[in-house]
Computed example of a mutant assay.
Amino acid sequence: MAQRHPDPTDPRSGHAGPAPTGDTLAGYLRAQATEFLRALRLHRETGSGANGPDGSADAARALRRSARRVSASLHTFQSLLDAEWSDAMRPELAWVSGTLAMEHAYTARLERLLTALHRLSGSTALPSQGPVPAAGRPAAGPRTPPAPGAERGNLTVGAAKAGALLDRQLTLARTRAHSTALQALGSSRFHAVADRVAVLASEVPLTATATATDLRPLAAAAEDRLRDAVTALPLITAGNPYNAAALIHGLAPDTAPHPQDAPWHQVRLLLRLHRYAREAVRGEGTGETAADPRLRAAGLALNRHRDASEAAAAAAQAARTPRIAPATAYALGVLHADQRHEVEAARFAFQQAWQEETVCAS
């Protein structure tokens, strides 16, 4: 019998040695399923304990992380998995991850906006009527404040009321998201998902040919989709210090998401799929420490882009509140413009990180 030689290593996969196959994927999925079950147990143990809020937040974050990785792997390597099972599992995992993410998103958005108001108004205290909750996302970096004079006075006067308005709106949204998450975790739908994940922790429904199929072409296809999406981005515009077109419709009556942002959000999702595919090919249990520094920098820039985009939308939505004072509306308008500046800065940061990644890969 002729000796079988391993396939050449795909330099983009970072995998050395024999070709990773469906067995490698099965090990990765079992590890992520185990992480999901461990986080679920932690959430149940800490939910009503003395340190419940912090423990529950950490557990919810771990649940989201493992659910995203399993769902992404089912998407990228769907041809190696039972189609009926995969098609039924993916939307349920997306529902779990999305539902658990909302409370954290509103908390971080409120902190970002109040911190920006504080910075822009030059006040000595955050312009809020109550304490600002902790959040896991970093606040926006320093920006050049508005010119002194009447504008500064109007901004300072309106900042407190704008902060109070944002505090009321986003705290209400966060409370509703918290209730929704609690209801979801106690629902029969979630228990069904947990049962399926428990089965996945011991048995992965691979196809008959999966154990002989190389994972690297499928992972390379995920990378190609990412590169195609990045190529379609207006990176030349992102290199400009200011994109005035991004503000034209910011405070218009139309509440639809900003049309410029959608391609960038899509690239963020594709970058995540690419990262998780690399993890699966390498058989890594987690990518938090092993991720390529350049990919991590690009991902952080896109996260910052998403945060600033959503914060700008929240400021614009608050500015549409009926019968608010002119000073309040002015402060919210300045805040909206500031966050759109942050969007542009994040696009530029992604451009720099991606160009470095492309040069190093060539």
Rank of each mutant, 00 (worst) to 15 (best):
T171S: 14
Q183Y: 05
A212P: 09
P148W: 05
Y28I: 05
L226R: 07
T213C: 05
A194N: 07
Q169C: 10
N243C: 06
W95T: 09
S56P: 05
A57K: 06
L269Y: 10
T175D: 15
A331T: 04
P142A: 10
A2V: 15
C360Q: 15
A59F: 05
A337G: 03
T99Q: 06
A162W: 00
A19D: 10
R304G: 11
R41S: 14
A256I: 02
L273R: 08
E84L: 14
S187R: 07
A220C: 11
G333C: 10
P257H: 07
D7G: 09
V334Q: 13
Y330G: 12
V334Y: 07
Q355C: 03
T175G: 14
A262V: 13
A140S: 06
A346E: 02
A316Y: 03
E151S: 14
T237Q: 09
D214G: 06
P263D: 03
R109G: 09
Y106R: 02
Y106V: 00
V96T: 14
T207R: 11
G158M: 11
L235Q: 02
G14L: 13
R268E: 14
P146S: 08
L80Y: 01
Y106D: 00
A67I: 01
P234C: 02
G153W: 07
E84D: 15
T289N: 13
A221T: 12
R347G: 13
A232H: 09
A291S: 12
A318D: 01
R61W: 08
S188R: 15
A62G: 07
T180P: 02
Q3E: 12
P257L: 06
Q355V: 01
F348W: 12
